[in-house]
Design a protein around this nucleic acid. Structure first.
Length: 442
RNA sequence: GGAGAGGUGGCUGAGUGGUCGAAAGCAGCGGUUUGCUAAACCGUCGUAGGCCUUUAAAGUCUACCGGGGGUUCGAAUCCCCCCCUCUCCGCCA
């Protein structure tokens, strides 16, 4: 695959998006499972387009076969010195007809692929049914927490007061939904990144990678952000490059169009990257503070597994992310998303939510998903067991979102005097035990 | 940014208009030989889609030699545009 031509990429990716024969043979069952996640599959349209496409293909291909053999005849006749004018005219007409048939087949094909492109992944059978986040189920944690013995300040007040967060200057430098971290605030962000990477690489068995922060369209199709979610992304003008919305994209696509040996799986990678999201359509949500920014930092966990081991690995990966919160002593709960609340590409997702005392609620800090073969099929990532080759399974989860961890830490460890105590595990990284107000910047 | 050289199957690498999905070698897979290993020999060995078939296999057809378009009865091969890689120069961290 060249990186340049989006049309070709779209065509190629869509042809690999789903297991066609599985859909055909289990169409009603598939529609039923999709209905569970709130997606209405038009079964009749599916059948009609599929049948029409196949008819058109058959017709076009059989004529092509004739043209090909007649063309070869011309070659032979010419070699023997015979006159081929008449035959050439006949084949030329055949070629025109082939072009028409191909056009018709391509149109039907395109319609069919568009239908398929909008179909989300099938939820795993262990996923609870439900319509919205109201129906998610808490699987761990979530016990009621004792309130701080004083009014909790929000990080958007606490940060500027301590001189570790500056929204005004960020707005000048760039615009809304950006922040500048200052002094210990900046170092806290860096400390969290190093802490997370160290725990995952030294104790959870992940290999650290530092990928490009810009990715091309083909990569975004591979993991499912395109074609449906272009509005959530920033694109670099006059190029085919985009700012990565999550390390999931560059890291999962490391193995695009590759076949891995099953015996080497699972492959577990972790990566620190900044992430860029346009947050189009989120007007009015989390407008204050650094909960929802155009740029945020994240340590991401990604796994490539054999199909039969992916759900065990999802449990491990989720546990690896939770471990960071445990070590930092931050209260959290883990919920399994119901069918109606899952992301487009996911078969099963756990959200880990951290307690924010200023808001009096749990807030998402990590989302851990098993995509089964959905991404692998799009991205052409396969595994080989003996002589059988099949799409492998991909998983990922935040381990963790650094900005939100920063918020949780500052808010949960704030003291009555306005300072912030640093938990034991992080002190070697921050080289400080407490954050106190610093002087004005400049 | 300027100049040049390239992109062919898992890899190396032939092929410059016709019977080429593509020589050869390596790797892989199956087998023979072998006390075991190695070697040797024989065979096999791309992907996707369509038809056929209960499914699969087998068979058959189509497409694919970086991507797109064009010329032609016929394109890996000729023409145009784009992408990528490498080398040299410039610039920069």
């Amino acid at each position: 695959m060249g990186g340049g031509n989006v049309g070709a990429i779209v065509k190629w990716v869509f042809s690999n998006m789903y297991d066609f024969s599985f859909f055909r043979n289990n169409l009603d069952a598939v529609a039923e499972r999709l209905a569970a996640r709130g997606f209405a599959l038009d079964v009749d349209a599916f059948r009609a387009l599929d049948a029409g496409r196949r008819t058109a293909l058959t017709e076009s291909e059989s004529l092509q076969a004739r043209r090909k053999s007649e063309s070869q005849q011309i070659g032979k006749l010419k070699a023997s010195g015979a006159d081929t004018e008449e035959l050439q005219a006949k084949v030329r007409a055949m070629g025109d007809r082939v072009a028409e048939l191909e056009k018709k087949a391509a149109e039907l094909d395109e319609q069919f692929r568009e239908l398929l492109a909008g179909i989300p992944n099938l939820p795993h059978e262990s996923v609870p049914s439900g319509r919205s986040s109201e129906d998610n189920i808490v699987v761990r944690g979530g016990e009621p927490l004792a309130a701080l013995p004083f009014p909790a300040k929000a990080h958007w007040d606490l940060g500027p007061e301590l001189g570790i967060l500056d929204f005004d200057r960020a707005a000048k430098v760039t615009g809304a939904r950006f922040a500048v971290y200052v002094g210990l605030g900046a170092r806290l962000e860096r400390a969290l990144i190093n802490f997370m990477l160290d725990v995952h690489t030294r104790e959870h068995g992940y290999t650290e990678v530092l990928p490009p922060f810009m990715i091309n369209s083909a990569s975004l199709y591979g993991t499912g952000q395109l074609p449906k979610f272009a509005a959530d992304l920033f694109k670099i003008e006059a190029t085919d490059y985009w700012l990565a919305p999550t390390a999931e994209v560059p890291v999962t696509n490391l193995f695009r169009d590759e076949t891995l040996e099953a015996e080497n799986l699972p492959v577990s990678l972790c990566a620190y990257t900044p992430c860029f999201r346009s947050e189009a359509g989120s007007y009015g949500r989390d407008v204050r503070g650094i909960i929802r920014q155009h740029q945020f930092q994240k340590v991401e966990l990604v796994k490539f597994t054999r199909p039969e081991q992916s759900f065990d690995e999802l449990e491990k990966l989720t546990g690896d992310a939770e471990d960071i919160l445990k070590r930092l002593g931050l209260p959290f709960r883990t919920v399994v998303l119901c069918t109606g609340d899952m992301g487009f590409s996911s078969a099963k997702t756990y959200d880990i939510e951290v307690w924010l005392p200023s808001q009096g609620e749990f807030k998402e800090i990590s989302s851990c998903s098993n995509f089964e073969a959905f991404q692998a099929r799009r991205a052409g990532i396969r595994c080989r067991t003996g002589k059988k080759t099949e799409p492998l399974h991909t998983l990922n989860g935040s381990g963790l979102a650094v900005g939100r961890t920063w918020v949780a830490l500052v808010e949960n460890y704030q003291q009555a005097d306005g300072t912030v105590v640093i938990p034991e595990a992080l002190r070697p990284y921050l080289n400080a035990e407490r954050i106190t107000a610093r002087g004005k910047l400049g």
